[in-house]
Nucleic acid binder design. Structure first.
Lengths: 343, 343
DNA sequence: TGAGGTCGGGAAAACCTTTTCCTTCCGACC
DNA sequence: GGTCGGAAGGAAAAGGTTTTCCCGACCTCA
């Protein structure tokens, strides 16, 4: 089974030979450098074409000081959130001829170190660290500022690091302002576990938006639980089956909660958005579109976040220094759950 | 902003110098090659440690004929299905010190070619092509068998290619056998668009499992539509609101359909699994767990598929030849929608 | 005392490109 | 005719590592 190897690729030496020039000349011809007769240049290019020559970028990188590759280290395994980010990042970097190495370390420091070692060996030009986390993660151990590192959708416990995050606070404000804008005054907030920083930030946005409209958070209207539909249903039960005044709107911490909530409302015969308007978070189409009615939601613009990360990384590789936390605006997407006139 | 560059890394030359040996000797010491005094070896290793030396794998790859990298080309953008596959693949390859380049070409042949060019330039040792597709895709244009290529969750129109796929047929059979096993005899199949090969295969498995139990497909019980919850609800409406005999089980082409179906059944007061048992496909936990009751489903073992792809690729890089279509078994996961005794 | 063996380590080629510096050739100009 | 300058292209270093081959020193044995 081990007999026939994969054939070796043509090198620039083969091209030079076939074109009857020196290897330096061949290089110049192919890179449009130096001073060559047009005829020679064309002869070399033709030879390269015929041989299917493709320059060995390992050799090129060795010579230049750039490898034209970057690493993407995902701690949390590639979740639903990482995908659009990485996809857009890859797209952006590909435009600059930069390829990405994907690694996944699933919160295992040992594997992270191992991957990092490998990436450093490969002389990546930069590193993106991503992965949903509740708290700040320890910074990755790249030896002595050897390359730019950006944390995306993840926060490093290092004031010198650059972190790119969605604007949870602003997103929450938009959601609540929208609900206030359609006349709601009794807005509850059902959200995830308070261990997530996003939960705190979104709650703050919620409260500040209320305050800005002269409203205050009503006792019992802020409910933290899990990121699941079941919790959404449960919270609705608690809010609507008890005594007390009923909410006329729900701002939910994610779309799963929002969907569970609308299901529970429908089953109680409570009209959405008639009696209660609902806005979710994440704009995850699997949820927003399947819910009845389709959910209004806050979109974190993850693709844009990925693109931005690509942008920043390219600039930093070119020498620019950046640090601190940069938050990208969220967008409100209105659907029927908060506006019956929407399709 | 362009003043301070990233510092250059230590090279083996620095290590050799610090240890007072030649660079060849340093290399031998670090790779545990050649014949050296233990003391010398240790001195070199210590020097490397002190300098934080990490061999430049570009240089290594240039010398060896292996780059220790492989490409992953995703046509369909990284969907929900690609992720577990890629994750497991990466894990498996990482164990062998192989890193992966991720590229996404979203069904754009021009971008695909561009990525392929880039990957060839980087001298990848192998290529994985992935992406859910309905039909066989044209094989990727790697010049003259220059490296092994494996299609995963994707099929190439080339008898010489190796394609790794889930066993849709067998998965469907398992689902239906399970339903028959719990005493159901009137089993309907609600599934996706017939343009997907998987739809055809699963339907065949469904029919053959019925036949093996002496049952036949009932008129109007095979329904093709979209891969959505809405379609699941719609199909239930068609099946249960009309005249005709009612099904006592539903085998659904994916979990979204299955979930839509269970929702529709519940709203009609039809007990699941009491009156109608439901089995889905994909075992997508977001759906199976949120559904009421939780859905039994067929798991395509995508992680195992990814691991297998890694396995095969490593073997092929080592010289083994393989071709044809290899299908990986699916697994039935039983939950309440087909067995009330399950949690 | 010399032949042969082992041990320890150095020199240099090889991997593939790019780039700088040189050489050669030729026409032009004084 | 000699000099200058430009055009065309070659030679070689550099980039970092591995590996093969070789050399010198020391040892063993006859």
């Amino acid at each position: 089974m081990d007999d026939d190897r994969y054939p070796l690729r043509a090198t620039i030496r083969d091209v030079a030979e076939r074109a009857g020039v020196s290897i330096g000349t061949a290089s110049k011809a192919l890179n449009d450098n130096g001073r060559l007769k047009t005829e020679t240049r064309e002869r070399v290019i033709a030879a390269a074409q015929e041989l299917g020559f493709r320059p060995n970028s390992l050799a090129q990188s060795l010579h230049r000081t750039r490898s034209m590759t970057v690493g993407v280290l995902s701690t949390d395994s590639f979740g639903r959130f990482a995908f659009p980010i990485i996809e857009a990042l890859e797209e952006r970097l590909a435009e600059h001829g930069i390829a990405i190495f994907m690694c996944n370390a699933t919160d295992d420091p040992a594997r992270e170190k191992q991957h990092l070692d490998q990436l450093l060996g490969k002389r990546i030009d930069g590193l993106i660290v991503t992965g949903r986390r509740m708290d700040k993660r320890p910074p990755v151990a790249v030896p002595g500022q050897s390359m730019p590192v950006i944390y995306v959708f993840s926060q490093a416990d290092d004031p010198e690091a650059l972190c790119l995050l969605p604007d949870d606070y602003g997103g929450a404000m938009q959601a609540v302002q929208h609900l206030i804008g359609i006349g709601r005054k009794r807005i509850a907030h059902i959200t995830g576990p308070e261990t997530f920083e996003a939960v705190t930030l979104r709650h703050r946005g919620y409260r500040d938006a209320l305050a800005a409209a002269g409203l205050t958070e009503i006792e019992g209207y802020y409910r933290r639980g899990k990121w699941s539909e079941a919790w959404g249903r449960e919270a609705v039960a608690a809010l609507f089956d008890g005594e007390g005044d009923l909410p006329d709107a729900l701002f939910c911490g994610n779309d799963q909660i929002a969907r569970g909530a609308t299901d529970a409302l429908r089953e109680r015969g409570i009209a959405v958005p008639g009696a209660v308007a609902v806005v979710g978070f994440d704009n995850w189409d699997v949820m927003t579109r399947a819910a009845r009615p389709p959910l209004s939601s806050i979109d974190m613009n993850l693709r844009e976040l990925g693109r931005l990360a690509g942008e920043r990384l390219i600039a930093m590789i070119a020498g620019e220094r950046r640090k601190g936390v940069e938050r990208l605006h969220c967008s409100l997407v209105v659907r029927q759950s908060s506006d019956p006139t929407q399709s």
